[in-house]
Design a protein around this nucleic acid. Structure first.
Lengths: 331, 331
DNA sequence: GATGAGTCTGCAATCGGTTGCAGTTTGTGT
DNA sequence: ACACAAACTGCAACCGATTGCAGACTCATC
């Protein structure tokens, strides 16, 4: 059995209260007794029982993370960031995966909320209202999106799209296709908006081809429609979609970047390995997880400041140019 | 504030003990009072506080999962499986990522062990002795490997390699190269062993080219050595390595499968998207996570049976033939 | 030497449940 | 009608910590 605070107290010849204080409020106890306690702690390898502490303090030292799909490399990186940062603060992370089922989110968060101090929620599809309802149960920080009234960390999609378009326009492209992700996805909306602005500012033209699943298959499905637009370049919702495009274009004998330039978003590991290697807007994924944790812990430590209004984090993407973009073909 | 057992008791007009029993030992309480309690629970939305329960029962209802790298799709899938199965049993999962640092494992498990009932440990590199030491702290189930004296779930690597070799030999290959992963990795050892046996049984010849990092870069680094062996086919430690091979072979102008056939192991999502699509031994990754959880929970529910000797799970791979393997070239 | 302030330390209550034991009720057999 | 067992239910202790409050001690000051 693990040592309890009483064991330590007995060994050090003091009361449990003193041990407790020696550990959490060192200033309140005499240096010599503090040393005796420290020695006893050391000797017994004592570590406070978190459940017992949580019972009285109301804090569990644990946060939750809810993501749509752990097998998606984007969310895996996010999780890695959350996890690393949490450990740095000596906070444990419950990870839950909704299996891309937005309906499961509310229930999951509710179940988690009893066991954690707060949750980092990655919910690209839920509406603002649904999120607000979820946030009733516990302290929530959104990640990879924003919603009115809730704290969150998101990417500046407008800026990322501007970089992509500037790159393509500089290469001589004038007509740019856009393969959107799920219509309800926050990122789809913001990227589409950013593209329209950027394209307009640079006197180019946007050819949206609709909404597709944010997957390899989605990209395969979109490819022929992209070709039909007559665009010389295409921006895909994310890298998985872009890689799907690449595959279908290849099998149709369309050269990338000779006939068509392709740009993705995310910069997942796979993008570097694609053929041709994918030009993409790199999003700092782990960083988003880290910041979300910082935001959450800050809110928990200081609920007053949290009440003043939701805090936000904003992250910027960076265009990584590889081999899937090149000069527009001379017609 | 959340409702406590006392609130429920008051509303139902019974004592807290009765409420507790009505929920956990329904047989012990009268049907009508049980109904009254149930109604009160419903009305208040009561859920027992796990920390409080854990304090007295000694069970936290939580397990830990330690993996080398969440961003590696193999481990991500594993995590997904663990997580799904645990939720099915209403058990929460702490996920921790060692960032490929085997030295961190022991510390992590020790830290986790105070907060969980047991841990699923994925530690490909640690020695049997190190694992035994770690298992002192808490109930441990290994995954993706075995070690004497410890329960675990692992793949039948010999069988997987046999399938791969049989496929290659049927295609006319006689000299098969083998790109190993980290020398200390359990899977490297078992796959190498399985290959030697299979090759011998089928009167072919094995050309090992040494040990490489289990990554895309590792595969790139191994490619030229593979070519130098004069083999007409190569089995790679895993899919990432195989995809690295593909990339380097492509840039050297070596045709796959025309000049050289390539086989991977794992069947990660990326393999289907590689060019050519990768022939690989598919390992049921989520299944491994699920079984590990079942094993762990069974040990926790019935410590006696656990003492009888470690239980093991064994999973089989399945050869998925795609486009990276073909008939051996006529010399 | 008594007084008062200041520092430490310990007592005991508390968090929200679970469970051994004893008491109450109900039902059965005679 | 009575004894006795069976079936429920409640009391109170307990899990391992934290913390308000009060007591004990030290030390300086008058």
């Amino acid at each position: 059995m693990a040592a309890t605070i009483r064991d330590v107290a007995r060994l050090a010849g003091v009361s449990p209260s003193t041990v407790s204080r020696a550990l959490s409020l060192p200033g309140m106890v005499n240096a010599t007794t503090r040393a005796r306690v420290a020695a006893a702690v050391e000797q017994l390898g004592y570590e406070p029982n978190r459940a017992a502490r949580g019972l009285i303090t109301g804090r569990t030292g644990t946060i939750g993370l809810v993501v749509p799909d752990l097998a998606n490399p984007f969310f895996a990186s996010l999780t890695k960031g959350v996890q690393a940062r949490a450990r740095h603060h000596d906070v444990a992370v419950f990870v839950a995966d909704t299996d891309e089922d937005p309906a499961a989110e509310a229930g999951l968060v509710r179940a988690l909320s009893k066991q954690v101090d707060g949750v980092v929620l990655c919910s690209p599809r839920a509406s603002d209202e649904e999120l607000a309802a979820i946030a009733q149960d516990t302290t929530v920080v959104l990640v990879n999106r924003t919603a009115v009234g809730l704290p969150g960390v998101a990417y500046d999609n407008e800026d990322g799209m501007r970089q992509a378009v500037a790159h393509l326009v500089a290469l001589g492209h004038r007509r740019i296709a856009w393969v959107g992700g799920p219509a309800t996805s926050w990122s789809t909306q913001h990227r589409g908006f950013g593209l329209r602005n950027a394209v307009e500012a640079l006197r180019a033209e946007l050819a949206p081809v609709g909404n597709f699943a944010p997957t390899y298959e989605g990209g395969m499905a979109a490819a022929d429609q992209v070709v039909a637009t007559g665009a010389t370049a295409v921006v895909a919702y994310n890298d998985l979609v872009a890689i799907g495009l690449l595959a279908r274009l290849h099998s149709r004998g369309i050269s990338v970047p000779g006939d068509l330039s392709v740009v993705g978003v995310d910069d997942i590991a796979m993008s570097r390995m694609a053929r041709p290697a994918l030009t993409t807007v790199r999003l700092p994924k782990q960083e988003a997880g880290r910041i979300a944790v910082e935001l959450l812990l800050a809110m928990l430590d200081d609920p007053d400041s949290a009440a003043e209004g939701p805090k936000h984090g904003e992250l910027h993407g960076e265009l990584i140019v590889r081999d899937s973009t090149g000069p527009a073909p001379q017609k």
